[in-house]
Amino acid sequence: MKRQKAQRWGPGEQAEQHYLVQPRALAGGGDLRHVAEFLRASGWQDRSRRNGPLVLDSPDRTIRIGYNPHVQPGGWTIHSKATAHQEAWTVSLGRQTPVEIVAGLTDALTRPRAAHAPNVWAPLQEQRWNISRRDGHVSATSPDGAAWMEFRHAPGGEALWWSGARDEQGNGWSATFTASTPMHLVQAFSEALASPEPVMRPRGRVPHSARIRTTSVSLLPSQLGAWQQARVHAARAATWATGPQTAGRPRTTARPYANPSAHARR
Rank of each mutant, 00 (worst) to 15 (best):
W173A: 07
S209E: 07
V199S: 08
W148E: 09
L32H: 10
Q228Y: 07
G164C: 08
A175T: 05
G28C: 11
G74C: 01
S180M: 04
Q7N: 06
E168K: 03
R152I: 09
S132I: 12
Q96K: 09
V55E: 14
A140M: 10
D107S: 10
W162T: 07
E126C: 09
A262V: 00
P196H: 11
S142H: 06
G29H: 06
S58E: 11
H34E: 13
V138F: 04
H34K: 09
R133T: 13
W240R: 14
T106Q: 08
S174A: 11
W9E: 06
H79C: 02
A179T: 03
P11E: 13
G29D: 05
H85I: 09
R251C: 04
E150L: 03
W129L: 13
G94D: 04
Q86S: 14
G164D: 05
P69H: 14
P143M: 05
R236F: 05
V199C: 14
S48L: 07
I131E: 14
S216G: 06
Q245F: 06
K5N: 13
S139W: 10
A254L: 11
S195P: 09
F189R: 08
S80I: 02
G30T: 12
D46T: 12
P182C: 03
R40W: 02
Q86R: 12
R49P: 01
I101M: 04
G74P: 01
S261N: 07
T246Y: 15
G12R: 13
E37K: 12
G94I: 00
S195C: 05
H79R: 14
R266T: 01
V138M: 02
F38D: 01
G10I: 06
E168R: 11
W121A: 09
P123W: 03
Q125F: 04
P198I: 15
S58H: 12
T83R: 15
H233R: 13
Y257P: 00
S209K: 05
A254C: 03
N51C: 07
P221Q: 06
N259C: 09
A103G: 01
R211E: 10
H79F: 09
S42Q: 10
W240C: 00
G28H: 10
R251K: 07
K81V: 01
R49L: 13
P11K: 12
S218L: 14
F189I: 01
E197D: 15
T246I: 09
S216T: 03
R255A: 03
S222E: 12
R205K: 14
A6D: 13
R266G: 02
E16R: 14
A234M: 02
E168C: 00
T97Y: 02
A36R: 11
V120E: 11
P202L: 09
S190Q: 08
A115T: 14
W240Y: 15
A6C: 08
L124F: 12
Q228E: 15
A179K: 10
T83H: 06
E87Y: 03
D60F: 13
R3Y: 07
S190H: 03
G243P: 13
T215R: 06
R134L: 10
G75D: 04
G52H: 06
S190C: 12
A117Y: 04
L224P: 00
D144Q: 02
R95E: 04
A41C: 13
P260H: 13
R213F: 02
R213G: 01
A146K: 01
W173S: 09
L219T: 14
S48F: 05
V35H: 03
G12A: 13
R166L: 13
A108F: 08
R24C: 04
S195H: 04
S58I: 04
